[in-house]
């Protein structure tokens, strides 16, 4: 347990250092999401006030999904330089500590993208003057992120060996995460448009999101060990 924690901390600290040194890596998905929201504004034009919440939900989550995908697909990029990834495999590292450190950094980067995206789209898309941001929405977004993160780490590890990484990642990632997108959008819709609360949602969409999150977290934790084993 002591080695586990020490390894987790060491790997996490390494990831933080690399991300910090490379501002482009976490800034570019953020800029991408800003651009996407602007594009939504241009393509939708003037919207009737009653449609604003719906537009806000659709645009925000779609933007977040795309920019998170960009960020996730690059999680293991620093490890690919100079055969660091292979060297890590020759060290007696607990695969769970390795996975958890990657998961933590993915969630941290995700929050760094998600929070400004929610804020920016409220600023640009919601011209009604009354902010749509609230705690429930933040919780939904965070739960979606927690579910997506595990899958993001695992898929990005898998794609390391593939020759068709650029096209494959989105091709597999998006269909697999449809339940998360639907849950996030429908939950937000229920809250912002129908005026429901979180406890009501737990028995439907949010419940599905939680099941998805737990299942994927466990599955990816187990499978990650398989992926870093000797060939």
């Amino acid at each position: 347990m002591k080695t586990f924690l020490a390894q987790y901390r060491a790997l996490l600290w390494q990831a933080v250092q690399v991300e910090w040194a490379n501002a482009e890596r976490w800034l570019s998905p953020l800029l991408f999401s800003g651009t996407m929201i602007l594009l939504f504004v241009f393509t939708f034009g003037t919207v009737e006030p009653k449609f604003i919440p719906q537009l806000y939900i659709a645009a925000t989550f779609l933007t977040a999904f795309f920019s998170l995908q960009i960020s996730f697909s690059r999680v293991l990029e620093p490890d690919m330089q100079d055969r660091v990834f292979d060297q890590l495999r020759t060290y007696p590292i607990s695969p769970s500590a390795w996975f958890l450190s990657k998961y933590t950094i993915v969630i941290a980067l995700g929050v760094l993208i998600l929070a400004p995206t929610l804020f920016l789209s409220d600023l640009f898309l919601n011209v009604s003057g009354k902010s749509l941001l609230n705690g429930s929405l933040a919780i939904i977004a965070l739960m979606a992120l927690l579910s997506l993160g595990a899958l993001g780490v695992l898929l990005s590890t898998m794609m390391l060996r593939s020759n068709a990484k650029q096209i494959l990642y989105p091709l597999i990632y998006f269909p697999l995460t449809i339940p998360v997108l639907l849950s996030a959008v429908e939950s937000s819709h229920a809250i912002l448009v129908d005026g429901k609360d979180l406890s009501y949602l737990m028995s439907s969409w949010l419940g599905l999101l939680v099941i998805f999150g737990i299942m994927y977290f466990t599955l990816c934790l187990l499978l990650f060990g398989e992926l870093v084993k000797p060939e």
């Binding site: 898998m158 697999l176 339940p179 429908e186 969409w205 599905l208 299942m215 599955l219 992926l227």
Partner: peptide, 26 residues
């Protein structure tokens, strides 16, 4: 290596299909 990676993906796809079905039905 390929066998193992594809198998991991196969497991994920197989388990995700019922969830996708459920969510799309809702």
């Amino acid at each position: 290596q390929r066998d193992r990676m594809s198998a991991a993906l196969g497991v994920i796809i197989g388990l995700d299909v019922p969830i996708i079905y459920k969510s799309v039905t809702w």
